[in-house]
Simulated assay, not measured.
Amino acid sequence: MKRWFALSMILIFACMPTISEATVKLPSSVIDISKENTYPNPTQNLPYLQPSELAKQLLQSANVKIENPELIRLLNESSISSTPFAIGYEATIYLGQWPLNYESIETSTNWEYQKVNTNFIDNRGGKTAVRLTYRQEIQKQVRGGLTASIPNEEDVKKMMLLTAMKKTNLPLSFSTWIGIGTKKEQAYNVPPKKLGYLYAYAPAVNEKGKVTYGEVYIVLKGKKKSIVVKNVTSQGIGAWIPVQDRLSFAFVASDVPR
Rank of each mutant, 00 (worst) to 15 (best):
P151E: 08
L172S: 02
M159L: 05
Q141W: 06
T83I: 02
E36A: 11
I31A: 08
N101T: 12
P69Y: 06
A148F: 03
T38S: 12
Y113A: 05
L59H: 13
Q50K: 11
K223H: 06
S8Y: 03
L74P: 03
K25Y: 06
A22H: 15
I237C: 04
T83Y: 00
D255S: 13
G238H: 01
K167R: 12
Q44K: 09
V142G: 07
T182Y: 02
Q235P: 09
M16L: 14
T163W: 00
A6C: 05
D122E: 07
S254I: 04
M16D: 04
K210Y: 05
Q141T: 07
S175H: 06
P47R: 13
P151S: 10
K224G: 02
N152A: 09
K115T: 09
Y39A: 07
T163E: 15
V256A: 09
D245G: 03
K127S: 10
A14S: 14
A62Y: 07
T182F: 00
S52M: 05
T83C: 09
L247I: 15
R135Q: 15
M159D: 05
F249E: 11
Y113S: 12
Q97W: 00
M16A: 13
E215C: 03
N169M: 08
V190F: 00
L46D: 13
V216T: 08
Y199T: 13
P191I: 01
K224S: 05
I138L: 07
D155A: 10
G126S: 11
N117L: 11
P17C: 07
T18M: 07
A202Q: 13
I72T: 06
T23Q: 15
L100Y: 07
L71K: 14
G144M: 00
I87F: 10
S149R: 15
I138A: 04
G222C: 02
Q44I: 07
E215P: 03
Q114S: 10
M165H: 04
E36L: 01
P203R: 00
A239Q: 12
E21Q: 14
S82E: 06
A253G: 08
I237Y: 10
S81I: 05
A164T: 01
G126R: 15
F251Q: 14
E77F: 03
L162W: 03
A62C: 09
L162T: 06
D122L: 07
T168K: 09
N68W: 09
I105N: 12
W4Q: 14
I138S: 10
M159F: 05
Y199M: 15
T133I: 07
T212F: 01
I237M: 06
K225Y: 12
R73E: 13
V116T: 15
Y188W: 14
I105A: 06
Q57V: 04
I178A: 05
A250N: 14
Q136Y: 00
I105V: 04
L220Y: 01
A6D: 03
L162K: 15
P192V: 06
I80C: 01
V252N: 15
A200K: 15
Q44Y: 02
W4I: 10
P191M: 02
M160P: 04
N169T: 05
S52Q: 11
G145Y: 00
S173V: 01
